[in-house]
Write a protein that binds this DNA or RNA. Structure first.
Lengths: 358, 358
DNA sequence: CTGAAAGCGCTAACAC
DNA sequence: GTGTTAGCGCTTTCAG
């Protein structure tokens, strides 16, 4: 069904054009030292034969593949997919191809074969887009491999001597809790993500710090740990209300869990935002259409991916040009707060001024 | 900061071991014709030097890269990402690498450079995971390229002479509407996806056909076109209620739009499922936590991706083995209906039997 | 301006 | 069993 059409090689083009392969090579690489008529002639032959130079052969001789290895986890979630989307676009824009590998779990231990496969394919750099969970970062360092290509890590805390790009989770948490305080809420609880995640710890630390700096007392009754999933959020909110009945607002570490908090409120006649103010995290596309629409911390995952690629390629180029060695650096991107109805008391709309004066 | 560690070549391993490169080659490929002690010796050297054969050089000589090109669109949506996740896992399992390209739009016209880049990198096959929108399928056929590798198309209607893998959207729509009829709803409206999408047309056709086969009259007042987004759903439901006030149930072409239908109902005091039964499509993870939980058609996007890879590789292998040419075929995967509260009238729970008898 | 020779890292075919 | 030769498709010397 598929007809095998031997695609032409440079040699065939050369003999068809009656020139040497070097001349063809010069033409396809736009070198200056070819006479205009030879160039035109060769280009015609190339056109006619549908010749396409082999990137493989080129990579081999140039010792440069213009390919990035991307290792990612959690593609079934919207966050990582958006990051990947940003990665693909930036790579395309900058002329790089992408070799994609997805880890079966966030904390996959068996990563040696992954690196080997990437190295064997001569990638020019690696983007490690796996969030920091438990000890998984160190597994990369402990690899019995000495890489001569740069790795850029995504979504982890900064460390010495490696390049990291992250979104500032702590800042996002601060914005969320500060907003709730400004809205006049006084008993602000928290449902955290799984605490072996760096991101979850950052968000929670911000919650605690902001409250304490505002002279609120924070106890272990005021928060519950979830695991990012809506169903864990459902369990968490039930427990949290039991141990913290005075709660009048809640900062939930992601929108999925916030969704089940809202479902719980619906079921139990709790009015949002009057009885309970809610702020989520992530700004998934659905958040705007929850009832009421959810206030949440927006992360630009797409741009995040773009920045990662730009950074990686910057390092590759500098490295190849053998200028002074590249100093690894940490880049922190700022999230933003999207205020919707779930955290803005309707009462305040009328009596807001007096509230402020007080 | 990065130390350039010339990675060893087969030649270096050979001379370090005091054998020819051929012998090293035999060892790394597990060929039988090497004496046990030579093999062991060479393996030690390989180990010590951290030698890693070059996949590039191998691909060049074997004329086989064990790499698949994946062209995808809409990575920022959860569906395509899940499909991609299935693709990555199946590829990994079957020993293939993935070169990923994302189209900026679903109906990107400028696809020649994409194919060229994939071909230049000697992919063994291509998975075209771009849904059929408008005329975009034909753009592939019209490419001035004569490929000698198989292409498998995802999410499109079957055609002669090409390999297609799809989820059966028509069947999904049938299941949704049949279910609503069984629940006793009699005035079933529809919010469709954008009708230049094949999937949207299939779902809508099923809605129409099932109703007509049940002797219901279907008019243009009974449906409105959306564009998959929640905000389009919000506009659509408003319009639909205006033109079809008797509506007592609705089949919405995806869950995002169904979400805004539920928001609309909430706002306007319409009780779900009593005043309005709702069935969505896709089964996004949040659907279970809408209020009430949403009945929807579940598509196993992950498995979909896996099947696509398996099929592609099957064709590649057959093709390479030069057995009889592979007959292109269409594979249709069946979705399933997930029944939740949004479509099951509470009244019926008590009077269900009498309803049936009638 | 153009061509011949060498070689990127590997394997197939054949000798010894 | 093991080594030699040739060559995958390309580019980089270096002659002419």
């Amino acid at each position: 069904m598929y007809q095998r059409s031997a695609r032409p090689t440079i040699k065939e083009v050369a003999s068809a054009a009656g020139v040497s392969t070097q001349t063809v090579s010069r033409v396809i690489n736009n070198r200056p030292d070819v006479s205009p008529q030879t160039r035109r002639h060769v280009q015609e032959i190339i056109e006619r034969l549908g010749y396409q130079p082999s990137g493989l052969a080129r990579s081999l001789i140039l010792q440069r593949s213009y390919t990035l290895g991307v290792v990612i986890a959690g593609l079934k979630y919207i966050g990582p997919s958006r990051t990947l989307s940003g990665i693909t676009r930036a790579a395309e824009r900058l002329g790089y191809s992408l070799l994609l590998i997805e880890l079966p779990q966030f904390d996959t231990n068996n990563i040696l074969p992954i690196f080997q496969s990437l190295i064997s394919r001569h990638v020019d750099g690696i983007i490690w887009a796996v969030p920091e969970v438990g000890d998984n970062r160190n597994w990369v360092n402990r690899l019995p491999l000495d890489l001569d290509i740069p790795i850029v890590y995504l979504t982890m805390r900064s460390r010495e001597n490696i390049s990291v790009v992250s979104i500032n989770n702590y800042l996002g948490g601060q914005m969320a809790v500060t907003h709730l305080l400004e809205q006049g809420y006084r008993h602000i609880g928290h449902i955290s993500g799984p605490l072996d995640w760096w991101e979850a710890r950052e968000r929670m630390a911000a919650w605690k710090d902001v409250l304490q700096q505002a002279n609120h007392i924070v106890t272990d009754e005021h928060w519950v740990e979830g695991n990012w999933s809506s169903s864990s959020g459902a369990r968490a909110i039930e427990k949290l209300y039991r141990q913290y009945p005075d709660m009048d607002a809640i900062f939930v570490a992601n929108d999925q869990m916030a969704l089940s908090v809202m479902q719980y409120a619906c079921r139990n006649g709790i009015q949002i935002p009057d009885d309970l103010g809610i702020v989520g995290f992530d700004d998934i596309p659905e958040s705007e259409f929850f009832w009421p629409p959810l206030t949440t911390v927006h992360q630009d995952q797409y741009n995040f991916g773009e920045v990662a690629v730009e950074e990686t390629i910057k390092i590759i180029e500098a490295y190849r040009n053998e200028r002074e060695p590249v100093r690894p650096k940490s880049i922190m991107l700022a999230p933003s707060l999207v205020v919707r109805d779930s955290s803005v008391r309707k009462r305040r709309a009328k009596g807001g001024e007096s509230g402020k004066r007080k």
